[in-house]
């Protein structure tokens, strides 16, 4: 991730005001742009469509049928085969690694962001901490993987899920702190002052004021980090070894190596590993997309 991405939310929470539309005023339809975006849509959709329909074909029918026509005799055999080759275990591994990293990462990032915003201009230590995190945005994960590998071996954590969790937390921190602090900054000062007059401690203000008021940002950061860790490939590849520690992307890769000729089965494994995220996406689509727009926009 890069260091220039920064956020300036206009409103905290709440749906965007529809009536105050900005941008180009409504005018005659733009055929060129419309056509372009439909072409792009086709480029996006055709492979996805092909993946889904093929995953329901039997291997013999796959060669016989037109690849873009839905299967004449749809079968779940590919899915059964994938599930029987230990995918439930890999699924559990992915869930454990993702939740185990995202929840602590978001909590400690929130605490750090809160301290930096609330007291950053009085404490040189906090300003220094913040500059460190900002610098961290420019560090590519790949570049530090060899020492991380060494540290994990020396901690006797090699080939455990904890080996994935600990570095994932560290790598989630810089961006999380940046986005969360941009939102905490917009919580009106008066609210903090009045809570302090009532005798609230900073910890209480963090949990009962800042946290609820920045919930959209917390959700966005959580989803973003979860997606990154769920889809992560390099850490499991380098830091684990035994089949029973595999997370889904790694399992997908070795399954593909094993059954590369059985295209429908390989594609069924692709669909299965994506399904959990897809369900989350359908549930939280509005939140994720608006969060990303605000979070990465100008």
């Amino acid at each position: 991730m890069a260091s220039t991405l920064t956020t300036k939310p206009e409103v905290i929470g709440g749906p965007e005001p529809r009536h105050r539309r900005r941008g180009r005023p409504r005018s005659r339809p733009n055929w060129v742009a419309g056509l372009g975006s439909w072409i792009w849509l086709a480029i996006v959709v055709v492979p996805i469509y092909w993946i889904v329909i093929t995953s329901f074909k039997s291997q013999s029918n796959y060669y016989a049928e037109n690849p873009l026509v839905p299967p004449g005799e749809p079968t779940l055999a590919n899915y059964v085969m994938v599930i029987e080759s230990d995918f439930p275990l890999y699924f559990v591994n992915s869930v454990v690694a993702t939740l185990g990293a995202v929840i602590p990462a978001v909590l400690i990032s929130f605490m750090a962001a809160y301290a930096i915003i609330r007291a950053g201009n009085q404490s040189r230590f906090l300003r220094l901490t913040n500059s460190l995190f900002l610098m961290g945005l420019a560090i590519p994960l790949q570049a530090t993987i060899i020492p991380v590998y060494l540290i994990i071996i020396r901690l006797h954590l090699y080939d455990t899920l904890l080996a994935l969790i600990l570095p994932s937390i560290a790598f989630a921190i810089p961006l999380s702190v940046l986005v969360l602090s941009n939102f905490i900054r917009d919580v009106p000062k008066e609210l903090f002052d009045s809570m302090r007059l009532d005798g609230a401690t900073e910890t209480a203000m963090l949990w009962r004021l800042a946290f609820p008021l920045t919930r959209p940002a917390v959700v966005t950061v959580t989803i973003y980090n979860a997606l990154t860790i769920w889809n992560g490939f390099l850490l499991p590849l380098v830091l684990t070894q035994s089949p029973d520690k595999r997370t889904l992307p790694l399992a997908l890769w070795s399954f593909q190596g094993q059954y590369s000729i059985n295209v429908p089965a390989v594609l069924a494994s692709v669909v299965l590993t994506t399904l959990p995220i897809l369900i989350l996406y359908i549930v939280g689509r509005r939140q994720l997309l608006s969060g990303l727009t605000v979070g990465f926009g100008k």
Binding site: M111, Y114, R118, T144, I151, A170, I173, E202, L206
Partner: peptide
């Protein structure tokens, strides 16, 4: 308030700065 940054700082140092 500085203690609030300590957990994040520890993780980031251990698996970010030291590896760098």
């Amino acid at each position: 308030l500085a203690w609030m940054t300590v957990p994040a700082l520890l993780f980031f140092t251990g698996f970010g700065l030291i590896p760098l």
